[in-house]
Structures are given as C-alpha cells and as structure tokens.
C-alpha cells in the first residue's frame, strides 16, 4: 500500500483554476518533489491531502484513509509546514512550541530542542519580530516535533538565504534518511533535484510528468560542449560524424551527444585537435521538463 495515494483528484475553482485529474502515489520512505510555477496547483494538492479542502471529484488517501473524511486522524501522522507562515497570537517561539506540544500531547520537548539546536534557532524571540527564516525554522520544528511518519512541506525554502537553505534541507534530508515519507513542493528545480527521489511537475493544475531522479542522473548519454582554437580543427571534428546537438560556427563551438560507453572514442578523436575547452553540460531537471513542456505544447 502506498503511503500517499492521489486518484483522479480534481478541485475546480472555476476559470480553469484549480487542479484537474491528479494521479500521484508516494511510497513509504520516498521523498517526492512537487514542482510547478506559482498558481499551478501545488498548494491545492497539499491542502487536499491535509483534508482542508473537499475535492470536487476524485480522492486522495493517506495510509489508505480518505483525506477529507479522516483529516484529524490522518493529521496524527503528518507534519505540515504551510506555505504561508503565520503563527497563532502568542508571544514567543517557546510559548508557541510548548502550545503545539500540548496539542500533540507530547510529554517531552527533547526532540524539539535537538532540532532547534541543529537549526541554531533562538526560540525565545518574539514571534512577531521573527525574520522569515526564523519563522520558517520554527514552523519546521513545530511540524517535526511530533516525529510524524509523513511530512508535507509547502515551498519551505522560499525566502531563505542560501546558507540557511542548506541547513534547512539537511534537516529534511536527515528525516528522509530516517525513512519518513516526504512531499515537498517547490518552484525551484535545483532544490528538488538534489534531494528528492522522484519529482512531479505540475502545470496549470495538471501533472505533466513524473520522473525518477535516478533516470535523470544516470542517463545513457551525456552532452559535451567543445570549443576549438581554430576553424580547421572545428571543421575536421564536424566531419567525424558525432551526433551534434548544437553547432555554433561563429565561436567554433559544438555540443555533442555521446553515449556513456562511447566517451573514449570521443577523447581518442580529440587527441590530434586543438581544443580550447571541453565541458559536460549536465542534464538538469529543468532541462528535462523544458523538453517535456516543448513536446506538450507542440
């Protein structure tokens, strides 16, 4: 049984806004990245999972339990970091975390303390005066302190500085390694491709594609960009018959697509030629999705 299962989920807000016919499953221990532009339906999907909104049609399940009807029961197993951080009308972070612990019926705050230390979070600060990053961290602590099996993160790193983001992501990855099931939405490909097992792309309320990061990282062929010092060598190379993905005659540049096991052939051929530089063009998620979208639009 999949931990999270979304079946034909539709939430129609009218004017083509909302999510339409979403199908998605997340296995236990899997971390899924959920990527899409603003307003593409990421938050709506997560809210459906939390049972905050009632789907127009279709269902979503957590541990086999329907989300809308069993929202409070499911919530026991979910740690949720909302996209928009707003705390209850309390004074300090401590007070808020204590209150949350009470909601969760937690006996000790040890785990929370451990996390605050790791995140270098000063919980005695006034909630209202907290910076965006501090708020984000506090929210993460609040979501994780109950040690839930499932973690739903709605654009958790938005507004964080790069250093903070690293610390933040480390903590999430740590949870992932503990075997937690994680769904993280983001509008940044880099972030998800680094840590997620799989990534789903959502656009205008539709799931465009779901890819495994393994497939992206371990592609059978790679692209290399080569620049030659002179025109003669460039022309010679072009005549060799490599699969050129992009040619820029003006700069004596060419991008070739080489199968992994043919990489030595390339180097052998390049031996007699004067190469200015050679670099691998990584196949990123962004590129992958760009290609998918290109196909889709055509």
């Amino acid at each position: 049984m999949d931990t999270i299962e979304i079946k034909n989920l539709t939430k129609d807000y009218g004017n083509k806004r909302g999510i339409f016919d979403i199908n998605l499953t997340i296995k236990k221990g899997e971390m899924l990245g959920f990527v899409g532009t603003n307003g593409s339906g990421k938050t709506t999907t997560i809210r459906s999972l939390m049972g905050f909104i009632k789907p127009t049609s279709g269902h979503c399940f957590i541990n086999g339990k329907e989300c809308w009807k069993n929202a409070s029961e499911n919530a026991k197993n979910i740690g949720y970091v909302p996209g928009e951080i707003a705390f209850p009308d309390l004074k300090t972070g401590n007070e808020f975390l204590k209150n949350q612990a009470e909601f969760l019926h937690l006996k000790s705050g040890d785990y929370a303390n451990e996390m605050t230390k790791k995140l270098q979070l000063d919980t005695s600060a006034n909630l209202k005066r907290m910076s965006k990053g501090m708020k984000q961290k506090t929210a993460l602590v609040a979501a994780l302190m109950g040690n839930p099996d499932i973690i739903l993160l709605d654009e958790p790193t938005t507004g964080l500085d790069p250093l903070m983001r690293v610390a933040f992501m480390n903590l999430i990855e740590e949870e992932h390694h503990k075997g937690k099931t994680i769904l993280m939405s983001s509008h940044m490909f880099e972030e998800v491709q680094e840590s997620c097992d799989r990534v789903a792309l959502i656009s205008d309320g539709h799931i465009i594609d779901i890819v495994s990061m393994n497939d992206i990282k371990n592609r059978p062929c790679k692209d290399y960009k080569i620049e030659f010092l002179n025109k003669e060598d460039f022309k010679k190379f072009m005549e060799l018959g490599f699969n050129a993905a992009r040619v820029q005659k003006k700069y004596n540049q060419v991008t070739v697509n080489i199968k992994n096991d043919e990489i030595n052939v390339l180097f052998k051929e390049l031996k007699g030629l004067k190469v200015k530089f050679i670099s691998e063009i990584p196949y990123t998620l962004k590129r992958h999705f760009d290609e998918v979208l290109k196909v889709e639009n055509n």
Partner: peptide
Amino acid sequence: NLIAGQVDSGSMAYVLSTSTKR
C-alpha cells in the same frame, strides 16, 4: 480572532494539523 482571523492568517493550520477536529 477565534476563527476567521486564524483562517485568514493561516495559523489555524497549526491547530488542525495536530489531529484536532474541526
């Protein structure tokens, strides 16, 4: 403050994500 304010700001999420029923 009790309901709409918390829904509007979003802080109600912390209450409802802790298995507290509506």
